[in-house]
């Protein structure tokens, strides 16, 4: 069993007015086989958590730790983290002009596995994943994220999740901007990933909608850069009914 362990994580970003602390001591443990939903209002630091775990240079970790099976993740470079088994599905995937999806996927797979995938099985696998996500086959020859619709970008992220098959997946608002059909397709992909067993999911979302299709084991409410409350799936239902208002009031009072 693998464990992703976040302890007292403090993260700040540079602003015009100097460093601004966004995460103020986050504690979170995700074990393989578990799906955790992180919910919270805009600006609560959810995405910062995701990018900090992935190692985006914009975010400076000023305190605390992140360990993957007792190995210090914060000591690793961005690509080392990915090769260690972490994956971040981004809210705004980046265009890479002139680089085809097929070249990108093959290069990433080779990097993750340490060897090039066998051509025949690889092509079959790519086609199968794309078919499952209702992606046209011509996707492979398009440039990475260039001219993709919002929904296509998210499917492409989930295709990478399935093909690279990490131990822990962090999904940063993968549901945002998706219509109901695309949401189902994407959720099915995440569920296929989880169903293999031994995989952990950290699902970051603003809305409860996607939790109807992906059943979380734990729900954490993020407010003001730390976990304000946690519970099971029933917590999401309460948020659906009540919204985040009472947390922001509590945050303001503290």
């Amino acid at each position: 069993m693998a464990t992703l362990e976040i302890r007292d994580l403090h993260v700040s970003v540079d602003t015009e007015d100097g460093a601004k602390e966004i995460l103020r001591g986050v504690d979170l443990t995700v074990k393989s086989g578990e799906t955790h939903a992180i919910m919270g209002p805009n600006g609560s630091g959810k995405s910062t958590l995701a990018y900090s775990i992935a190692g985006h240079p914009k975010y400076a970790v000023t305190g605390g730790s992140v360990h993957l099976d007792r190995v210090d993740v914060l000591e690793m470079s961005v690509d080392e983290r990915a090769r260690a088994g972490l994956f971040l599905a981004m809210q705004y995937p980046v265009e890479v002009p002139g680089v085809s999806v097929s070249n990108f996927l093959r290069t990433a797979k080779t990097a993750i596995d340490g060897e090039a995938p066998k051509l025949r099985t690889w092509v079959k696998q790519v086609n199968e994943v794309m078919d499952n996500l209702s992606m046209d086959r011509d996707f492979a020859s398009r440039n990475v994220n260039e001219g993709f619709s919002g929904g296509e970008k998210k499917r492409h992220e989930i295709a990478q999740l399935e093909l690279l098959n990490p131990t822990f997946a962090i999904l940063d608002e993968t549901d945002s901007g998706l219509d109901i059909d695309a949401l189902r397709v994407v959720a099915d992909g995440v569920n296929r990933f989880s169903a293999q067993g031994g995989r952990g999911v950290l699902l970051i979302t603003h809305y409860t909608r996607i939790l109807r299709y992906i059943q979380p084991d734990f729900v954490h409410v993020f407010v003001n850069g730390r976990v304000a409350e946690q519970g099971g799936a029933e917590l999401a239902e309460r948020l659906e009914a009540e919204g985040y208002d009472r947390y922001s009031k509590a945050g303001a009072a503290s």
Binding site: A82, F87, V94, T107, I112
Partner: peptide, 30 residues
């Protein structure tokens, strides 16, 4: 050089030098 492109590629396990190479090749590809 677009740091966001580099981050995206590296977050998929692609080492920095290889990621730079991909971006430059892509730039000239058309």
């Amino acid at each position: 050089f677009d740091d966001e492109q580099l981050f995206y590629l590296r977050s998929r396990g692609i080492a920095e030098d290889e990621a730079r190479r991909l971006v430059v090749h892509g730039f000239f590809a058309d």
